[in-house]
Design a protein around this nucleic acid. Structure first.
Lengths: 335, 335
DNA sequence: AGTATTGACGAAAACGATTTAGTAAATTAA
DNA sequence: TTAATTTACTAAATCGTTTTCGTCAATACT
């Protein structure tokens, strides 16, 4: 391994000078800088991140906390898009990313411990149980943190406009003439609350009274639980003519139930999803849904996080808007 | 940050003793070990990975090289499963993972340089262009490497049984009575060659003569190119009655073309995919396909890589078998 | 001319661990 | 009883950087 000493020997200057030349200190003469840089690339020199970190306390590494028991991590299409965008923006900013977990090797270690162990300069937290004590420990620690789709006081966060999304979908269904609109939502997280609020707002504006049994809880990304919720809705004395589902993927559970009952989408029942992942575009019929801007969510998270790592940035909540995606899963309803 | 020195002070022993006690050296008395460990956990001590690395040259970090221009990295469902499994096995073995790229910050750096910069103990290489000079440089370097779905001489690799997969799918179509079977395959990589071989083997066994224009190249994970290939097939004077597609995802392109021509699956034309991702299970009709065992591929890669990092292990090629998944996309063909 | 300033560089400590080569006391062997 | 061995520990070097003070010329200012 070629080190700074090799360069210093080759150039006849001290290691200190090499370091400074490489890091652009003004006190080194242009000729020396030139010489050092040339030999560095001649010798194929790469700084040792560990040594640098040890001295500077900056790892150029950001942690990503992405775990959630309801979904199998990276295989969740929406989050894999967020993650991909996080990765790309991080790389563009000169950072690598490390997944934060709480069991590394045989050792149990808390999220915070893992961050410290790897000296993460900051952490992006997404889609976890934000009440989890380990998450709270991390959030309250000294390590810079940004949260996705959840906001803590005095901390920056990136949130997808969930209220708007549910509002737009609800409004659309109402516009199409539906009056019996059900909402199968996910676990009662902040995201869910926002969506319920958006849904209610739309219903209010259209003067639609929604009976409580039309608003029913299932689990995100869990086709089975959504299927059961759908069954419950269809078993009602007055079943809905339209259903909003928690997300595009779990909608499949609902679809299965609907089809098995001999009903068809959208003739007998109109549906819409949430997320706007690729899947929603290729389903048959194509799903009417709300596309969350995963790319921008990931990118903004890192941008904001790096800002708060490198400079001083004020806590801020950044709202990322989405986009209505129409499909063929909703039909006009006339009565 | 609490260091080994804090513990040594608290316990009244030297830092050396603390280090040895923590690392299970035999020369430390049981009482001291006990004392050191207790105070370590009392002070919430975490070793500093960078400092340890600097001295030991072991980062407990494995690199993952996953780039490919035809697919958008992590958002590829099959590879996100492999990756997820790589991550889990790595964590179980006490490793973190780092994505290897060749542009970190404003600096261009080769894959190998990136590995050295982060001191990766080893690298898992998957799904890239294995002729890429930078990949070759990495493969030929001193850093332990394992390749997925490609084998270099004297290096360990994990390969999915592509020949078997294509063979089984081809055989199945033939069994169902099809005689005009087309194969839309991906770019001419080793994987593709294996599949073509498997396909041909099946056709031979059933004594089926396949005209050259039935074997046609498209691109993996590229719905558009597959759509074009499908169009070409359907435009033939004697179009096939069954088509094997490069993968489940890009099949969508073929499906679109088929449907737009007013044909239906499987009544007019039978199809099968490859990969067996979730998507294939929820498509309508459900896709007949070959499930690659992404979980085992990821897990075995890390296991083998760690083996060659930690001990001495012989180069070995591990074949991971898949599983035939039947759907409703193929119908019996009687003539 | 004498002093102050600037420019260009180097010596050495430090970061937090690991590890080699001791050392002193306790134990065993002869 | 003395020498040899074992036990339990420590001092100090080291990994590859960065950074704080110097230092020593050369130049600029009274």
């Amino acid at each position: 391994m070629v080190t700074i000493k090799d360069i210093s020997r080759e150039c006849g200057v001290s290691p200190a000078t090499v370091s400074k030349a490489l890091n652009g200190y003004a006190e080194i003469s242009p000729e020396t800088v030139e010489l050092v840089k040339r030999t560095a690339s001649k010798l194929n020199y790469m700084p040792n991140a560990a040594a640098r970190l040890l001295k500077t306390n900056r790892s150029h590494n950001i942690g990503v906390l992405f775990v959630d028991d309801t979904m199998s991590g990276l295989t969740h299409e929406f989050f894999s898009h967020v993650l991909n965008s996080v990765k790309e923006e991080a790389e563009a900013d000169g950072y690598d990313i490390t997944f934060i977990s709480n069991n590394i090797g045989r050792q149990k270690m808390s999220f915070l411990q893992h961050c410290r162990y790897r000296n993460c300069d900051g952490v992006v937290i997404a889609s976890v149980d934000f009440q989890n004590p380990e998450v709270l420990e991390l959030v309250r620690s000294e390590v810079p943190v940004i949260t996705i789709d959840y906001s803590f006081d005095n901390l920056s966060s990136i949130v997808s406009d969930n209220q708007e999304g549910a509002y737009r979908l609800g409004s659309y269904l109402a516009e199409q003439g539906h009056r019996k609109i059900a909402f199968v939502h996910g676990e009662r997280t902040l995201v869910t609350q926002k969506r319920i609020r958006g849904f209610n707002k739309a219903m209010n504006e259209y003067g639609i009274e929604i009976p409580p049994e039309y608003i029913i809880e299932a689990r995100y990304h869990d086709a089975d639980s959504v299927r059961k919720a759908t069954a419950a809705l269809l078993d009602l004395e007055e079943p809905p003519t339209a259903i909003m589902f928690p997300d595009d993927f779990s909608f499949i559970g609902g679809q299965t139930e609907i089809i098995e009952r001999g009903l068809s989408i959208p003739d007998d029942i109109s549906v819409c999803g949430y997320d706007g992942i690729n899947l929603s575009r290729i389903l048959n019929p194509q799903l009417t849904t709300w596309r969350q801007n995963a790319e921008r969510i990931g990118k903004e998270s890192v941008r904001k996080l790096v800002e708060s790592i490198e400079g001083t940035s004020v806590a801020e909540q950044i709202m990322v808007s989405g986009e209505f995606l129409s499909g063929n899963s909703v039909r006009k309803w006339e009565n």
